[in-house]
Design a protein around this nucleic acid. Structure first.
Length: 122
RNA sequence: CGAGCGGAAUGGGCAGUCGCGUGUGUCUGCGGACGCUUUAUCACCGUCUUUUUCAGAUACAUGAGGAAAGUCCGGGCAUCACAGAGCAGGGUAACGGCUAACGGCCGCCGAGGGUGACCUCCGGGAUAGUGCAACAGAGAUAUACCGCCGGUUUUUUCCGGUAAGGGUGGAAAGGCGAGGUAAGAGCUCACCGUGCGUUCUGGUAACAGGACGGACCUGUAAACCCUACCCGAUGCAACACCGACCGAAGUGGCUUGCUCGGCCUAUACUUCAACGGGUGGCUAAAGGCUGUCGGCAACGGCAGGCGAAGAUAGAUGAUUGCCUUCAAAGACAGAACCCGGCUUACAGUUCCGGUCGCAUU
RNA sequence: GCUGAUGUGGCUCAAUGGCAGAGCAGCUCAUUCGUAAUGAGCAGGUUGUCAGUUCGAUUCUGACCAUCAGCU
């Protein structure tokens, strides 16, 4: 049962998603931080051997529509870089107020710069 | 043409590329059956199979709102044995209708506003009772400060009558005139005003109009309260089933806040710890559209055809071009069991029907 | 998603429908060689916002806004 479920998640986006609060808190506490007015990235090494991502959109950003838009823009930007990422890391993206008004191509440039300085890009 | 009133609709469209949820079909794998093999089983290999479970690929279909929001009312649905009685508590408030129901809607009455179209109103009872009315004022539901009149003393004063006049206040015993009196007073009378009772006419009714009688009473019930009607509690995190845990502590427990009544009994209930398990509940609905009939209308009857979101860290996105536009498609905003309302937010556009003013015919 | 509670000076809180108050903090003066403590005085409020009931609302009623808590 367990391995089947992992396969389904792997297939749809190529990565597993972070779900529990403890995973996020570990990333905030131990991970390296890369900041930008439109995006904050936390990178933390894990032992699973696969890449896991999480997206945080807090209530500060706005109402439900604006939070959904920020999440979708970040997800669309991540789908463009996912083939180039080395496995074995937990990545947490935190949306900020300006994320809502950016296009996904702009977020993509920021994300590539941050992940490159983290040494995750091949 | 200008100003203003009421109602309704819309809430960008098309195409390319990359992606997501759900459903259905096809294929592949897994699985299952049989054969081969083997002492026997597994594995390998071959054939068949889709009824069921799972995964992948692919094709097709479909995929947020008018408020999805606030969670303010009402109902369905579910559990509590039945949904029972009384008390407490809560809600509603002219009248008639609509509705599954409502605090909603329609009509109508009354009051208020506007030249008008039209708009606004938690609109029962203060003559059942209790409470409150600061400050000011003589006095706040009962009275006598100034004043006026009579008596007494006489320089003062004291006693009685009075509510016309003064001033205070949101509110001071209905207004005004005549008679009357020592001075006055609904004390008496005419007219007017207010609400009450009886009765007549119109209306289903609230109510409106008329006649007669007797009265003049402060405000506040979004103060307690009274009257009439309504409400059992908890909410899909309800609840049912399967799995895991199957540990510790305490106690009879449940039904309603209380009482009665009732039910279940240690495989029960509560708390802590833990699994942050899975499946169902889950979407065709008191649904909307068109026509027609009934009704002033809300709404109801009949006929036709329409009618696939169902996620669970939570799917509708990203990006490019063109069209539309004065303008870069730019407002408010994301279903979470489902409906009927209410309230609040909202860029721009369109349509319909009244009103007033000015000008022309 | 559901349920409930609270908004008063810079902070913590009080209030019978009738002048908005207390403590701490702030400022000025006194005291001291100076500071603290102490004493005297001063200032600071759209009572979350908007409507309504009332002669009058922090208080009563409704709508909205913000914050906090609980339920798997």
């Amino acid at each position: 049962m367990n391995h089947i479920r992992k396969d389904s998640v792997t297939n749809l986006s190529g990565f597993e998603t972070l779900k529990s609060n403890s995973d996020f808190r570990r990333a905030y506490a131990r991970g390296k931080t890369y900041t930008n007015p439109a995006l904050v990235t936390y990178v933390n090494k894990n032992r699973a051997g696969i890449c896991r991502i999480g997206i945080t959109t807090s209530k500060k950003i706005g109402n439900a529509v604006q939070r959904n838009r920020a999440r979708r823009v970040i997800r669309a930007a991540f789908l463009c870089v996912r083939q180039d990422i080395q496995p074995g890391y937990d990545i947490v993206f935190v949306a900020r107020t300006k994320t809502v008004y950016k296009k996904s191509t702009e977020i993509l440039e920021i994300m590539q710069k941050q992940l490159d300085s983290a040494g995750l890009l091949r």
